[in-house]
Design a protein around this nucleic acid. Structure first.
Length: 551
DNA sequence: TTAGGGTTAG
């Protein structure tokens, strides 16, 4: 831990109440301390389907004045309140029953699907809108493109662009920014610049979208040139933060810090972006130092800062600082029980620091658990055991009505690996496809290879590698060679060696294990050959390290 | 009345 961080945090954070709360967590003095108690809780999300609670009478009860059938303005306001405050199927029920709809009504419904991250429904809604003869406006286009980013619908970006041309909206600033994001997302720099050129007015937001777009595509130097071309009078704190985030995204953390230091004005966004940059680049101590600097500068931390700094504590396995931050959260009166992200960060921090019981206590007290919260505690049990408990948590999650995602299965399979639960792991690997429709990614295959390999079923692990629908990566081969080494199996080790040599990434651990397996079998010629290759590829054996303090 | 250039968790 860097000098200076601890005393400042202590001075800032410690209070009797906060310490008592921390002790309560560690001593499991919270009301829910068992999986059974979690099971007794009502589901976090309503599981009702259909529109049984949604009709106009219900809507009328909730508001003083019933809109007249022709008052579309009031109907839209009612719909907005439904979208923001009620389950989405109820909003949809109201939308379907509205006597009159205009483009704002459609956009409000679309915004609900957009916020709920339901691109399929946005897509469906767009089709309906078109069939009803409603002309989309800039907000419609903006929400449609934003919903499709990072999804399989992003291939529609050029088609939406075509529609924008036909609608005569190419010079619209809102449309242009959305379209630039879309083209950056599909990796088309020529189209990105074309959209920018088509804008009749170029406010700071458009310049920023261009800089961010190039950064997203990894064209850092081009983004820098555009930033310098941007009129100085238009550059604001957002522009600088865009540049900073771009460097972070491209793992150029020193340049990000240089931008941060040159900023004449910093706001909560820029502080968070810089802290997050350090966390993403595994410079956890720097993130903690920056957190302290921010507090010294007079800024009050918010939930974004706390979740960031907790990630830093988790990454550095700094339990004591994590507890100090937890105390600070309690002392500062952040409504942590309402903030699922901060609560989940706390779960992750305690789990990463080995305090799995404390992690479970925090988890159990999250009122609005989401998939990330479940995954955080499941991941804790996956690493710290017992593996069976991770499976119990999974079963509770499913009973609770929360749908698993790919990360859930990485945690579950990891739990099976560490617990030696081969049959259970194979069952989960199968049901993630058949029951939950989640296609296994390379990380899932790596877990399965390790599961079979650790259990000595190297033939099965080899077969799985051969059947993978994608190229095995360094993690898959690393797991396999590790298991071959564990079982001193030269035959499968040679199979792994061929795979490792084909990789573009030469990880030192893989080579260390290859050396070990050949050394154990007395193949000294192979050992020398490997050492020559390591020199050629500048692969150096990793320096051994330990968390144990032997001083 | 719709969203909106930049920030958080697994």
């Amino acid at each position: 831990m860097p000098r200076g961080v601890m005393p400042i945090l202590q001075a800032l954070c410690l209070s009797a109440r906060a310490l008592i709360m921390c002790k309560m967590v560690r001593n499991k003095a919270f009301p829910f301390t068992s999986i059974a108690s979690i099971r007794a809780l009502p589901p976090t999300a309503p599981l009702k389907s259909g529109l049984q609670n949604t009709n106009l009478e219900d809507a009328h009860e909730a508001f003083d004045r019933v809109p007249t059938p022709g008052d579309v303005f009031s109907w839209n306001k009612l719909l907005r309140d439904y979208v923001r405050n009620r389950p989405l199927h109820q909003a949809r029920g109201l939308f379907d029953e509205m006597p009159l709809k205009d483009v704002v009504s459609w956009n409000t419904m679309l915004s609900g699907y957009y916020r709920a991250k339901r691109p399929e429904d946005v897509y469906g809604c767009l089709g309906e809108l078109g069939r009803c003869g409603v002309l989309p406006n800039a907000y419609t286009i903006s929400m449609a493109i934003s919903s499709f980013l990072d999804t399989r619908f992003k291939i529609l970006v050029p088609q939406i662009h075509g529609r924008i041309v036909c609608l005569g909206m190419v010079s619209d600033v809102i449309v242009g920014s959305a379209l630039m994001k879309g083209y950056a997302n599909v990796g088309n720099p020529l189209a990105l610049e074309r959209v920018f050129d088509d804008l009749s007015v170029k406010p700071a937001s458009s310049w920023n979208a261009l800089v961010s777009g190039y950064m997203e595509m990894g064209h850092v130097e081009k983004a820098e040139r555009i930033f310098h071309l941007m009129p100085e009078s238009q550059k604001d704190v957002v522009s600088w933060t865009c540049l900073l985030c771009g460097y972070v995204r491209n793992k150029r953390i020193d340049e990000a810090r240089s931008v941060f230091d040159r900023m004449s004005v910093r706001d909560v966004f820029s502080w968070t972006a810089m802290m997050n940059g350090y966390v993403r680049n595994e410079k956890h101590e720097d993130a903690l130092k920056l957190f302290v600097l921010m507090i010294k500068s007079g800024s009050r931390p918010n939930v974004f800062h706390y979740s960031c700094v907790l990630s830093a504590c988790a990454g550095a396995s700094s339990l004591v600082v994590g507890q100090q931050v937890h105390s600070s959260i309690i002392k500062c009166g952040i409504p942590e029980s309402d903030d699922v992200v901060v609560m989940t960060s706390l779960v992750d921090m305690y789990a990463n620091c080995g305090e799995i019981d404390a992690a479970f206590c925090i988890f159990a007290n999250i009122q609005n658990k989401n998939i990330a919260s479940w995954n955080a505690v499941m991941g804790g049990y996956a690493w710290h055991g017992p593996g069976e408990k991770a499976i119990e948590i999974f079963e509770s999650m499913v009973e609770n009505g929360t749908k698993p995602d790919p990360i859930t299965f990485i945690n579950l399979l990891s739990a099976c690996v560490h617990g030696g639960l081969v049959e259970e792991g194979a069952k989960f690997f199968d049901c993630m496809k058949t029951k939950y429709g989640i296609q296994p990614e390379v990380e899932h295959y790596a877990c399965m290879v390790d599961l079979y390999g650790k259990a000595g079923q190297l033939e099965k692990a080899k077969k799985l590698i051969e059947e993978m629908p994608m190229e095995p990566d360094v993690v898959v081969w690393g797991a396999f060679i590790g298991d071959c080494t564990m079982h001193s199996n030269l035959e499968f080790g040679e199979f792994a060696e061929k795979g490792i040599r084909r990789l573009k990434e030469h990880h030192p651990a893989s080579y260390t294990m290859l050396l070990k397996i050949h050394g154990e079998n007395g193949s000294w010629g192979r050992v020398l050959n490997l050492k020559r290759l390591m020199r050629k590829w500048h692969v150096r054996k990793q320096i051994a390290a330990s968390w144990l303090d032997t001083s």
